[in-house]
Design a protein around this nucleic acid. Sequence first.
DNA 1: ACAGATTATGCGGTTTTGTGCGAGTTAAAG
DNA 2: CTTTAACTCGCACAAAACCGCATAATCTGT
Lengths: 281, 281
Amino acid sequence: MDHQTTPAPARLPAGRKAELLAYVAEAEHATVAQLAARFEVSADTIRRDLHQLHRRGLVVRTHGGAVSVDVIGAAEKRLDVRMQIHTEEKERIGALAATLVSSNSVLMINAGTTTLSVVRHLGERRDLTIATNNLRIATEISPNIVRDLYLFGGSVRIGGQATIGPVSLQLPGGRDLQLRCDLALISVGAVSAKGGYSTSNLSEAVMMGEMMERATRVAILADSSKFTEPLFAQIAGLDRAQYLVTDAAPPSELAEALGHAGVQILVATASGQSENHKAAQ
Amino acid sequence: MDHQTTPAPARLPAGRKAELLAYVAEAEHATVAQLAARFEVSADTIRRDLHQLHRRGLVVRTHGGAVSVDVIGAAEKRLDVRMQIHTEEKERIGALAATLVSSNSVLMINAGTTTLSVVRHLGERRDLTIATNNLRIATEISPNIVRDLYLFGGSVRIGGQATIGPVSLQLPGGRDLQLRCDLALISVGAVSAKGGYSTSNLSEAVMMGEMMERATRVAILADSSKFTEPLFAQIAGLDRAQYLVTDAAPPSELAEALGHAGVQILVATASGQSENHKAAQ
DNA sequence: ACAGATTATGCGGTTTTGTGCGAGTTAAAG
DNA sequence: CTTTAACTCGCACAAAACCGCATAATCTGT
């Protein structure tokens, strides 16, 4: 696989980024120096490009270069079926979001790997009441921290470990009860100034919206790759949440919109633990 | 498993970690010295890499090297299965009960290890519709054999991998639907001539009863240790089922009662054949 | 068309990360 | 109990990343 296509004279930034993405995708991995030489720009420019592509989730940035998302996906998928991509960012977000949870409170948690990582960090809490549509929570949670665990019934999303259905429970006795909770933990697909919170699956969007409506406080979980254009189905406007837990400060426009909507932004910095930096490998 | 792919020509740190992970995954275990030679870096670097992968749960660190999570995962799973007293009898019962299931049919399955073993033997079926309160089914079933999978919501029984609630589903739209199925697979706690089918948990008994009422045909799964006195909560009378799948012929008094109730007794023998007892009236 | 604003790029600084080496410590094996 | 191998910790050095700023290119509004 030779990449001697063009000497790349004067090209548009966007065009270069597209080629850069194609290059990384085909070569599976590339170093910054390599790319700088190939496109005849400075290493700093390559870094900035890769940073953008990383934020859009098209590439995984690493120290020294970048690797294709398929590669990391394939590598992790091969042996990590039970524990989906559990990256450093998601763990940090989960740990920070867990600080919003106090003992004896009532939670609603939607499906998703990010919310699952919150559950892993609830070690000190006790007597929680949790209602969720996430099947994995039932298997991963420690029995010590939970008083009651309820699972919303419905259709099981194939592949995903979640159910799709209404946010309600009919306990033996027949009639439907109105449910409330202290805190809803919702992992969304996208956060944008224009489109608010959104995701790509309509049924899931409905569920998330219902959970949010039943909650006294709402925390949105979204890593920085979710700061993009709105996706297919809008869940709610920005002002519907009290907290946004993420791993990097949102772009200024979005930050301003969130501030205007009264959303408190919690950023999980890497400094907490002296672990590795970006999502490696 | 030949790993003579590359002599490792100046790789990215992250890229090396990815390959390292793949190497460990395939070889199942590897020593630090081995990996250091393979990737042409110092043993210290390998140690640091393994430490990071360990923190992310992708590998298990041991003295001298690391082992793949699959291996220990499989070991745990075996242990897990053993914990459920996953005897050969139950597997035989599961295999035999699976013969009652035809493609394109609609099943209701209750919680329990015996019913779970039925699911493992459905390999050839296709386009099944399954409704259950068993969380394990959602994770263990192959997506190829199921068209739709529904989970009854409710309280999650601690320790047990099952939900407790009414046998109904409210899909988005609001109102409750009447459900029917072709076959209900019910694993019970006891079968007796006097007490019919019974179990020790009241809520579960209610669920089993509801599943049976909604089924055209009912198969009871019970190994021979269940031919005892009735337990706390009666589920239904003997005549409510069409089949009893077990691993040894019941005592004569019970066999007679079952025959009188019109129950066909399927015995899974050690040789894999099924004896077909239709007790004479 | 032109001035101002926005974006993109490169450069020089500092800071962080990755790596190897050596000393001291700990764990496994004979 | 001894001995060897592996681990931990601290340090040093180099590469990479980050930050701020200056400059060039591009876009926008009148």
